[in-house]
Design a binder for these strands. Structure first.
Lengths: 144, 144
DNA sequence: TTTTTTTAGTTGCTAAAGCAACTATTGCTA
DNA sequence: TAGCAATAGTTGCTTTAGCAACTAAAAAAA
């Protein structure tokens, strides 16, 4: 790998792309008055998928810091989209679950998300997707 | 493009990878007592490259919000790495420049950054790099 | 059983992202 | 030339990121 190659700012390109996607998602949510942020959506999506899960587990599957999860969940509880329920067996643990309102929010927002993902992938093939996944995975695992 | 494909959370993978890189960079900066954040570094890198530039231009080349740039620059000014200098021709404009200390910081940190980039790319080829760049560019330009 | 360590979660702090509203110029136009 | 629009930046606000320090409970070790 050449020096000019290494000096190439791929970090920057990742960052710029992600910011652009995030921005687009947020603007779309806002335009449709979904009253939700992108990261709040990510948590809702995972809560829908996992049904019952702790802060810690949710942090792992979303690649978020547990403190960040804790605070986003607080906002979702305030919006009555999520309930916290202490575990009877282990009183340190708190299980998180979507409320009925939370499930409805998921079903309400999901079509928008699918549409946006489709938009992002326009002109790309499934093999492009595999390539991207492969390369990002390698980079991810290269980091000590 | 199939539905399962579209539903695949590539956004999440981008986010996770970027967070991991950012985290690694920050920890490395801290371990070497560079007293700098990743985004502060990005601005310094661009100030070194462009020599004399306004907030607005710096925001464009770094894909950052101008308010964000404004505040990061404030921190860099406090650290005496950057000076603001009003334009005599247009009193709205403020030119930004690295101080001598700022240039030194750049030269001091740059080897670390090159090393980390190399680490991230271990096991990948230049064609992987082109692929990643191409795919990210397509996605970026797909976003309305 | 008592002490120590580990685990789950919260709170305080600083940094960065981005929108809205604001000031101060400069440029355009009627 | 006077009035209005556009441009450059800053400040206030809410959200997310992540480290450090903390509480409380459970698990492991003495």
């Amino acid at each position: 790998m050449t020096d000019t190659f290494v000096s190439n700012p791929s970090f920057f390109k990742l960052d710029a792309t992600l910011k652009r996607i995030r921005n687009y998602w947020q603007k779309t949510f806002d335009a449709h008055k979904k009253d939700i942020t992108v990261d709040q959506w990510l948590l809702i999506e995972n809560l829908y998928k996992h049904k019952k899960i702790t802060h810690n587990e949710l942090a792992k599957v979303t690649s978020k810091d547990i403190t960040t999860v804790s605070r986003i969940i607080e906002l979702l509880v305030k919006k009555e989209l999520v309930v916290r329920e202490g575990s009877p067996h282990d009183r340190r643990k708190v299980f998180l679950q979507l409320t009925a309102k939370g499930s409805e929010k998921y079903k309400d927002v999901r079509p928008l998300v699918l549409e946006m993902r489709k938009t992002g992938w326009t002109g790309l093939t499934e093999s492009d997707y595999s390539e991207l996944t492969r390369i990002l995975d390698v980079i991810y695992n290269n980091i000590p």
